[in-house]
């Protein structure tokens, strides 16, 4: 079973994240960057399927040159090869444009499954699986906490508020996974050493057959118009206990709809 995993490099969620003042895009240069956390689960799931059934795991990443660090991490976890779509023209692309560009690359790859993380911690759009499904005309299975792939069929358990639903599709299909699905492995030292000799293809928009006019900030269907920093935290409300402290706290919690 051949699997493509979409992996995104994002600012470390523990770091202070900000937008560029000028074009209001995410500042990716001045912060520590990491693999989007849920993508590690996507890689892990692909590796488990591959280890059980054979096949190849390909990492697909769109991002600046620096994103190669994240690609190497996925390769050092055990993925077989990677495609890196990297071009200055892609800067500022929104989710719709990104799905267009990634879809173009996916059209050139042979796969049974595309596995994506349910959302990225930077944009928090949580739409990539759905957008690709529409563009590629392939079924999507979302919110998987368990994946079973056999023959030409893939079945998932989709987490819901009340329990789970079993959903099935024919392959090729697109699956988005959530944290409950597995415990991602650490890369290994041998994996790190092996990663440097694994095939990594870097594509420009031209190489990928992406129309430059349809990507990038200038052509983006959605753009950040304005932003402001989160207001500083307000001073808390102090409740003085005059024998009725418990009641007052309960009333406060009720007023905030916590209880």
């Amino acid at each position: 079973m051949n699997i493509v995993v979409l992996v995104k490099q994002v600012p470390d969620t523990w770091a202070e994240r900000k937008l560029n003042e000028g074009d209001k895009t995410l500042d990716r240069a001045s912060v520590d960057v990491v693999m989007n956390e849920i993508d590690e689960y996507a890689v892990e799931e692909a590796l488990r399927i591959k280890e059980a059934q054979g096949g190849e795991v390909t990492i697909l990443t769109m991002g600046p040159e620096r994103a190669v660090e994240t690609i190497r991490k996925a390769l050092s976890m055990g993925a077989d090869k990677a495609v890196h779509l990297s071009d200055e023209a892609l800067k500022g692309s929104d989710a719709v444009q990104t799905s267009y560009a990634l879809g173009k690359v996916l059209e050139t790859l042979e796969y049974d499954l595309v596995i994506v993380g349910s959302e990225a911690t930077d944009s928090r759009m949580a739409t990539m699986g759905a957008l690709l499904s529409e563009r590629l005309g392939q079924p999507q299975l979302t919110g998987a906490r368990k994946v079973t792939a056999e023959g030409g069929t893939v079945t998932i358990e989709r987490q819901t508020d009340d329990g789970y639903a079993v959903v099935e599709a024919s392959t090729p299909a697109i699956i988005s996974v959530m944290e409950k699905i597995n415990e991602p492995r650490y890369p290994s030292f041998k994996g790190i050493m092996a990663a440097k000799s694994k095939p990594l293809t870097t594509l420009s928009v031209g190489d990928a057959g992406v129309d430059e006019g349809q990507v990038g900030l200038a052509a983006a269907p959605s753009q950040v118009v304005e932003f402001s920093n989160k207001p500083p935290r307000q001073a808390g409300q102090i409740v003085k206990d005059e024998g009725d402290g418990g009641t007052k706290i309960a009333e406060y919690l009720a007023s905030q709809k916590f209880v």
């Binding site: 660090e69 190497r72 991490k73 050092s76 650490y186 890369p187 290994s188 030292f189 790190i192 050493m193 990663a195 440097k196």
Partner: peptide, 10 residues
Amino acid sequence: TAERQALRQL
């Protein structure tokens, strides 16, 4: 080196 940076991160 790139590999040692990755090892450091690991």
